[in-house]
Design a protein around this nucleic acid. Structure first.
Lengths: 229, 229
DNA sequence: TGTACATCAGTGAACGCGCGTTCACTGATGTAC
DNA sequence: TGTACATCAGTGAACGCGCGTTCACTGATGTAC
């Protein structure tokens, strides 16, 4: 497998570049410097171009990785909760997202922070980006199937239309739009909570972030009507 | 008032610089270029230093302005709603924030987006930053005073401690911590909703953003237990 | 009212810097016969 | 197994660029007498 060795080295180098770039995100934010990455790797800046055609391409790779890592984290966290306990599954989902985001705040910023100016995310990111949402939707679907989750909130016509279209696209037509609406609102809150915590908007107000996040999850669990066990 | 004329011209120029810089936010994001601003004003780049000691100082001025404009927008919107209709006041608050954010997306990004790397917001921003929160808290306080808003959610000890301390600091001790908890959650959701909308995370899912935002406000109003009228 | 002086806005050249990207190159590693 | 050739990673110099900030200056506007 002589060809294999070349390919493996190449993959390793690619990973090393991304690894270094990830570390640089912490300092430079999304406008990270190719030259700085190359410098830290002890390599000519032009060498990086053997692996990534441009700075934007490297950034795109990092973004896709981040979405997938977050997706992995959320999925495995949720999978560890007992299937029948919908509330526990929901909390596991939230804590999974938060733990990953806290461990990789700058990669999280890449995915859910302010868009990088002048940089247009390619299509490839939309798939991985929806993974956490699907985890939440599966919980809701299970709850609906068991007859334990149901909401009858009134929906204005355009809202209903948008939600029904989304459900059709994702093939979740067994989930009623009113349930999806609450799911999206809960998801939006969690996202906002992560931003507030990670970007330091709660400094001075909250000291025990673990407890506050857990409280939010429990409150949202009630809002979603997830049975306690 | 010869001195007055100098001062007025100075204020006008300062405003012109900020105005131009604001426009540049749309292109460069938070790492805006002093030179580009000066160029557009038809002025030597060094001239800007007569008005702002550094790029960071200009950025700080923009951030403070943004917080205050958002605060103004929220306060006047809320003030236009009938005092006795708590749900209407809450919706007005939310729509006020959203309308301003949509009209000034990049200034909004400055305040509630990812923090600018390498830039530490000075203390001066914390005051203006809390204005929208206070608007919401006043609505809750009124509801509590009238006996129409009350929640008995269980709070873990550290959560209760943090919330009580915050209430004491802000001198809202007549608002129970459980009510504040729901208020903060609602506020967090609204913030998340604005980010999702402004940063394009809902593309493909939502078409009618007005309707969806209004729905969220109504659902949160229910969550907060605000009486319909 | 007129003059001498101080204040201040704006100039333009210069500083030192880092950036993304290109290109012709060297030398090592793999491939084909 | 040995040799000729192709592939590929990495080099280092160079391109053209824009940036923030400083500094000595000019000239206009205001102030004090």
């Amino acid at each position: 497998m002589t060809q294999g060795i070349r390919a493996r080295v190449r993959a390793e180098t690619t990973e090393a570049i991304k690894e270094t770039a990830r570390r640089h995100l912490a300092v430079d934010g999304p406008n990270l410097s190719l030259r700085a990455v190359a410098r830290e790797l002890g390599v000519a800046s032009s060498a990086v171009y053997r692996y990534f055609a441009s700075r934007d391409e490297l950034l795109t790779a990092l973004i896709i990785d981040a979405y997938n890592e977050l997706g992995d984290a959320v999925e495995t966290a949720e999978a560890a909760a007992p299937r029948r306990d919908l509330a526990a599954r929901f909390r596991a989902t939230g804590h999974g997202a938060r733990n990953w985001a806290r461990a990789h705040p700058h990669e999280y910023g890449l995915t859910y922070g302010t868009p990088v100016p002048g940089y247009a995310a390619p299509q490839d990111t939309t798939g991985p980006a929806t993974r956490p949402v699907l985890v939440l939707m599966n919980i809701l679907r299970d709850g609906v199937a068991r007859g334990s989750v149901h909401h009858s909130d009134r929906l204005a016509a355009p809202v209903r239309a948008d939600l029904e279209a989304a459900l059709a696209t994702l093939e979740y037509t067994d989930v009623p739009p009113a349930v999806l609406a609450r799911g999206m609102i809960a998801w939006t809150e969690l996202y906002g909570a992560l931003n507030f915590e990670l970007f330091g908007r709660l400094i001075g107000a909250i000291n025990d972030y673990d407890a506050w996040f857990d409280h939010q999850l429990r409150s949202l669990s009630g809002y979603l009507g997830l049975p306690a066990r």
